[in-house]
Amino acid sequence: MSAEAARSMPVEHDEVAAPPREARDPALRLLEAMLFAAGEPLDEAIIAARLPEGSDIRALLAQLSADYADRGFNLVRVAGKWMLRTAPDLGFLLARDKPEPRRLSRAALETLAIIAYHQPVTRAEIEEIRGVSTNKGTLDVLLAASWVRLRGRRRSPGRPVTYGTTETFLVHFGLDAIQDLPGLDELRGTGLIDARVSAGLTVPLPSDDPSLKDDEDPLEPEFDLSFSPEPGDDDDFAGGGLSGDDDGR
């Protein structure tokens, strides 16, 4: 046999069988597909209704959370629900491909923080805490973003509207519950509050309980819930869409 013919002959290799893959739990695969396809966070009741009867929801979520702990996206719990979200350490890379968001002005951020910590709160109470008047456009922007909602009416002269935060607020800022907002010690640690401030300074424990308080009445059914910020209002945005701690998902 010529050398050329020998080179043209196929070389036989010992076939090495690949180790069999462990079959993935069908319920886990279905849960994974549901979370991947969902356009919004899913609560455990919805998940349970779509999984095979008898599935251990908590165990499946814990396993999936562990599986994705070191991947490009993680399974996270926000607003008491579950969603897949870009890993925090990669968010800044994806953010480079997104349009530059318009950022809330300082007045809007202060108003949002006051509502989050002091809800239910009226516009007059917001102004008292801030020490300055609040432009109507500021509240309109927060309402339009669905970060703030109208709760009810305060049982006081004029029956002013009370404001509170929404589930969208929790999802956007990656909070499982409103109580996850930083307390006084955490705010001091980040430098947002001077460590030398008065010892009497306190930060209220926030609560977004949807139930109306004793001093609140429900809104009238015909109450106009449509709000639109007026263009050019200098108390809405500081330069360009809504922006918070978005992770680039």
Rank of each mutant, 00 (worst) to 15 (best):
L192K: 14
L94R: 05
T111E: 11
A62W: 05
L90Q: 03
R58E: 08
A45R: 06
P10A: 15
V11L: 11
D234P: 12
S55M: 05
G164A: 15
E32W: 11
G164F: 05
L181P: 01
D234K: 06
P26K: 12
T86A: 11
R77Q: 11
E44W: 06
L31C: 13
E230S: 15
R7P: 00
A199L: 10
E40L: 05
A107M: 07
E12S: 13
D245Y: 15
E222I: 00
P206T: 10
L60M: 04
P229R: 06
P120K: 15
R130I: 08
L112E: 11
A49W: 02
G248I: 01
I193F: 11
R154T: 01
R151Y: 02
D214F: 09
Q119N: 13
S133N: 06
R130E: 07
E100H: 08
G131F: 11
R249S: 14
E222T: 03
T134Y: 05
S198P: 00
A107N: 03
G200Q: 10
P204F: 14
R7D: 12
A108T: 10
T111L: 10
R29M: 13
S207W: 02
A107F: 04
R77C: 06
D233K: 02
V121G: 09
A144M: 07
M34Q: 12
L187G: 06
F227R: 04
L90Y: 05
R188K: 14
D247V: 13
R21W: 13
A69W: 01
G158K: 06
A199E: 12
S146I: 00
